[in-house]
């Protein structure tokens, strides 16, 4: 899915369950500069072995939630992506 168009390298942060599954708190990954959130999620899920929690993940791009998976996300080099499993603060 990133065969066409330019790609950029972004930071990916993992937390809680996703951190345990990915076996690392942070990584870097190449992503297309323009991609829909659902495609992006699929890309990250398959890259980091998060299939078991795929349906509960939400992404944050530069510390803002990507509210809707049908949204299109635009990336710049060095952007920060976070993989957010269901929250349990409080």
């Amino acid at each position: 899915m990133n065969a066409d168009g330019p790609v950029v390298n972004v930071h990916v942060l993992f937390f809680a369950k996703s951190r345990e599954l990915a076996n690392t708190p942070r990584s870097k990954v190449d992503v297309p500069t323009k991609i829909t959130a659902s495609d992006l999620l699929d890309l990250l899920v398959s890259r980091f072995g998060l299939i078991s929690i795929r349906d509960n993940l939400i992404l944050a791009h530069n510390e803002s939630y990507i509210d809707n998976l049908s949204d299109t996300v635009l990336f710049k080099e060095g952007d920060e992506l976070a993989i957010i499993p269901p929250l349990s603060g409080g």
């Binding site: 809680a16 369950k17 829909t36 659902s38 999620l41 349906d55 509960n56 993940l57 939400i58 939630y65 509210d67 809707n68 998976l69 049908s70 957010i84 499993p85 269901p86 929250l87 349990s88 603060g89 409080g90």
Partner: peptide, 17 residues
């Protein structure tokens, strides 16, 4: 076990997805 708040923000899938 990792806990989950029932109030937690969840991914939304709009039909247009």
């Amino acid at each position: 076990e990792w806990k989950e708040n029932k109030e937690s923000i969840r991914p939304k899938r709009s039909k247009s997805a």
